[in-house]
């Protein structure tokens, strides 16, 4: 409109709605195409992996038990009695990792969100995130070279202390019985896994704790709560489902971790709870990695079948985690 007010010496056409092809339409289309294709691509990849696993595992799943007699690494077992101990080993190493990592992560998350001065908290947050960037083979080396000698005296004590000895004599073997150095057992592997899942759990719980409404924290403090009581009354209940989903995310990572377990653990194919004995357990992922190069024929199919089981397991764990996170979204609006 300013054009009409300007002196007539500057004849300038008022802006019109441009006719013809709309500007930017091509750009819109290209971008829409790229983002849609990316979204579909992810689904295709997921489906391709699932189909590959199903198709390649099928011969092993349907084969007669006798078909596996020639497969050396299966020790003459049929598919299911071979997979069960591996599934057990995967689960127990992950459970150990979570038992250690979850309380530690909650502690670190609370320290960062509610105790540490702001600058220290920020630095510590970055440091924890950096842990996630370390390749797992480095964790494996670290586990062998540094952690194993360090925990060996502790394991020796756990295995030989009077309480364990008394229980062995009067009740039976305990989970700490029969430690043999070096510490290439499931507990060491679980500890290495714990360090590896620490970053993702810590990052998630820290965010959840930071989201605690200030109103609830102040409500608690105004009643005369100490800081720890405020955390128990306002922060932890508010963050409970967040902690659960963080645990699930950590579990998903621990289940699939290969390299660190492969390097640290001396494998075995048994189902028992002797955490300190070598040659008792093995995880599915590490087992695939160690036997795939030498496998042939039905042996390859059997390994892929175990991979399928691991896939279903991690997929299920992640689904549950997502479900809990989604459920929580409804509650956060209720405040």
């Amino acid at each position: 409109m300013a054009v009409t007010d300007s002196p007539p010496s500057e004849p300038e056409a008022p802006p019109k709605v441009r006719a013809g092809r709309a500007p930017g339409r091509l750009g819109n289309r290209v971008f829409q195409g790229i983002s849609t294709a990316s979204g579909i691509f992810i689904l295709v990849i997921l489906a391709a992996v699932a189909i590959f696993l199903l198709v390649r595992a099928w011969p092993a799943v349907t084969a007669a038990p006798s078909a596996f007699e020639d497969v050396g690494f299966m020790l003459g077992r049929d598919l299911w009695s071979w997979v069960w101990p591996l599934l057990f080993g995967t689960a127990i190493s992950s459970v150990i990792a979570l038992v250690v990592a979850v309380p530690l992560s909650i502690g670190i998350g609370l320290f960062i969100s509610h105790y540490a001065p702001r600058r220290l908290a920020q630095g510590l947050g970055y440091l924890i995130d950096l842990l996630a960037a370390i390749p797992s083979v480095i964790f494996g080396l670290w586990g062998i070279q540094w952690l194993q000698p360090l925990v060996s005296p502790l394991f020796t004590w756990l295995s030989t202390n009077p309480a364990t000895a008394w229980l062995e004599e009067n009740v039976g073997p305990t989970i700490f019985s029969g430690y043999q150095a070096p510490a290439r057992n499931i507990l060491t592997a679980g500890l290495v896994l714990a360090i590896m899942v620490l970053p993702i759990i810590t990052a998630t719980v820290r965010e959840v704790f930071l989201q605690t409404p200030r109103l609830h924290e102040e409500a608690s403090l105004a009643l005369g709560a100490t800081r720890w009581e405020m955390i128990r009354q306002a922060v932890l209940p508010f963050g409970r489902s967040g902690v659960i989903s963080a645990t699930m995310l950590g579990l998903g990572r621990a289940l699939g971790e290969t390299m660190a377990v492969l390097m640290v653990l001396s494998p075995g194919y048994l189902i028992n709870f002797f955490l300190l004995q070598p040659g008792q357990h093995q995880s599915i992922a590490a087992n695939i990695a160690s036997h795939f190069p030498e496998a042939s024929g039905i042996g390859v199919d059997a390994l892929i079948a175990s991979g399928l089981i691991l896939f279903v397991m991690t997929f299920g764990v992640n689904l549950v985690a997502r479900w809990i996170i989604a459920r929580r979204a409804e509650f956060s609006g209720a405040n």
């Binding site: 109103l215 609830h216 409500a219 105004a222 009354q233 508010f238 209720a334 405040n335």
Partner: peptide, 10 residues
């Protein structure tokens, strides 16, 4: 407080 703030989980 200004806004009612009962603990939602209790």
């Amino acid at each position: 407080f200004q806004r009612p703030n009962p603990f939602p989980t209790m």
